[in-house]
Design a protein around this nucleic acid. Structure first.
Lengths: 118, 118
DNA sequence: TGTAGCGTGTAGTATACACTCTACACATGA
DNA sequence: TCATGTGTAGAGTGTATACTACACGCTACA
């Protein structure tokens, strides 16, 4: 597996760092609750991504979408899993049904559900 | 955590066993590729549910919906995770949008997607 | 020139996961 | 009575996950 996650975090962090010195490895690590050396290794792909909890924090601090960051780590947000686990047959069906649709079509479904009276 | 998974498996197995002697703990375990004592403990809740792979096999042998059995084990099928990981922002949105709808409404969406031209 | 902050290398750890192996007591049927 | 099948008990194992602790060398700057 390539190091998409680490590279992404490093880029996001360094971009922010140009304007804010609080985005050094050490400072960010501390704000997320990790050892700096651990975060450093994660960014360079010498360590697998951290737990979902830490990834969510990381996304928050970096101003990123947690779902996207989790996906880069090969994970899925627990609240989504919860939804599926509660009604597995139903959500299994709908997700597989939507799987092959292009983005714009799925978005149309999102909008219809949000706006319509269901 | 209660032992929903184990109880469910035991019930399904014993139901089938009335008609087919191939559904003893030993025989089923062998067909799924597990040690009988392990399966026995799983059924009685002394062991956590097995891996997703084994659960899928178990569902197959028992004639059950793998999504449902996985959910009882607190897991989600990997092919569904894959769908979400590929387009995390999009599927995050739609799943959360559908979360609070009642079954019949979600089913209507399923049908609309399946039949309609999207 | 000291000291503060920086990224990073090496080593180690605690916990959970997903099992296996062997052996036992009991029941049934030939 | 002997073989076969049954469920189960107890102990142990290998691997992955998710980290921490600490030390090193570099750079900026006061």
């Amino acid at each position: 597996m390539r190091n998409e996650f680490g590279e992404y975090v490093r880029q996001a962090r360094e971009r922010l760092r140009k304007r804010d010195a609080g985005f050094s490895v050490r400072k960010l690590a501390e704000r997320v609750g990790l050892e700096p050396s651990y975060l450093s290794k994660i960014e360079r792909g010498l360590q697998a991504p951290p737990s979902a909890e830490k990834i969510a924090l990381l996304a928050e601090k970096l101003g990123d979408d947690p779902d996207v960051l989790l996906a880069l780590a090969g994970k899925v947000s627990d609240d989504l899993l919860e939804v599926i686990r509660k009604r597995p047959a139903l959500f299994g069906r709908i997700i597989r049904e939507l799987r092959d649709l292009p983005d714009h079509a799925v978005l149309r479904v999102v909008r219809e559900v949000r706006d319509g009276e269901w």
